[in-house]
Simulated assay, not measured.
Amino acid sequence: MQAFASNNLTVEKEELSSNSLPDFTSESYKDAYSRINAVVIEGEQEAYSNFLDLAKLIPEHADELVRLGKMEKKHMNGFCACGRNLAVKPDMPFAKTFFSKLHNNFLEAFKVGDTTTCLLIQCILIESFAISAYHVYIRVADPFAKRITEGVVQDEYLHLNYGQEWLKANLETVKKDLMRANKENLPLIKSMLDEVSNDAEVLHMDKEELMEEFMIAYQDSLLEIGLDNREIARMALAAVI
């Protein structure tokens, strides 16, 4: 009887898991996916470019940064394949506009040699956002995209770690710049999430869960960098003020 009950519980969990997945063939899913897929493609493409720019700002680490950038290019190709697998054309004009403010802030920082802001944007904000979103997406993705995304998310931790380690090693000299850059750029993540929340819901990705996962990843990263709890709380407030 115990084994029988256990088997029933397994079946119920499997049914619940199956029922919680969206209909990957519906027009509403494909419409929403055209924008979400474009966002991840554009995000990986911009990450590739950003790492090449970072290689110019930190020439002593150029080889490593170029290697990380090439990984992002590979991710982009993988997500392009995810769209093709569902016969969905990504809405790239939407995605370029979606990233425009954050991308422009990165470029402005790059032009003046502001390594701290560039690292915060690419290695901390964007990577934390990507990691948290990918973890949520994997649970509701189609089998092909799930396999691709599981491989990508492991790489993203390497990119996050690079930014953490550089900022940690230079924290005493860059802390004020880090605080300023956070205040300017963290609110953009919240507004970007709001912009795609309806499409994310169609993909069965809950907006509140996405924001919660991002803030956990982001604050964990700040802790690794060496900021104390009070400083982290002050920085996190920028997301809600």
Results as ranks from 00 to 15, higher is better:
C80W: 14
C80D: 08
C82W: 07
R84C: 00
R84A: 15
N85K: 15
N85M: 14
L86Y: 11
A87I: 07
A87C: 07
V88S: 02
V88N: 00
K89G: 00
K89C: 07
P90T: 13
P90D: 13
D91Q: 13
D91R: 11
M92N: 04
M92A: 03
M92L: 15
P93R: 12
P93M: 11
P93D: 12
P93V: 08
A95Y: 10
F98D: 02
F98A: 02
F98S: 04
F99R: 05
S100A: 06
S100E: 03
K101Q: 05
N104K: 09
N104M: 06
N105Q: 12
N105G: 02
F106I: 00
L107G: 00
L107P: 00
E108V: 03
E108G: 06
E108K: 13
A109I: 10
F110G: 01
K111H: 11
V112S: 14
V112H: 06
V112C: 08
G113A: 04
D114V: 09
D114W: 08
T115K: 14
T116V: 12
T116F: 07
T117N: 03
T117R: 12
C118S: 05
C118H: 03
C118Q: 04
L119E: 04
L120V: 07
L120E: 08
I121M: 03
Q122S: 11
Q122D: 09
Q122Y: 00
C123Y: 01
C123K: 00
C123L: 03
I124W: 02
I124Y: 02
I124K: 06
I124L: 13
L125M: 12
L125V: 10
I126D: 10
I126L: 13
E127S: 05
E127D: 11
S128V: 04
F129N: 09
F129P: 00
F129G: 10
F129L: 15
I131W: 07
I131D: 08
A133Y: 08
A133S: 15
A133G: 11
A133P: 00
Y134C: 07
H135N: 15
Y137A: 14
Y137W: 14
I138T: 01
I138M: 02
R139C: 05
R139S: 13
R139E: 15
R139Q: 14
V140H: 15
D142S: 12
D142Y: 10
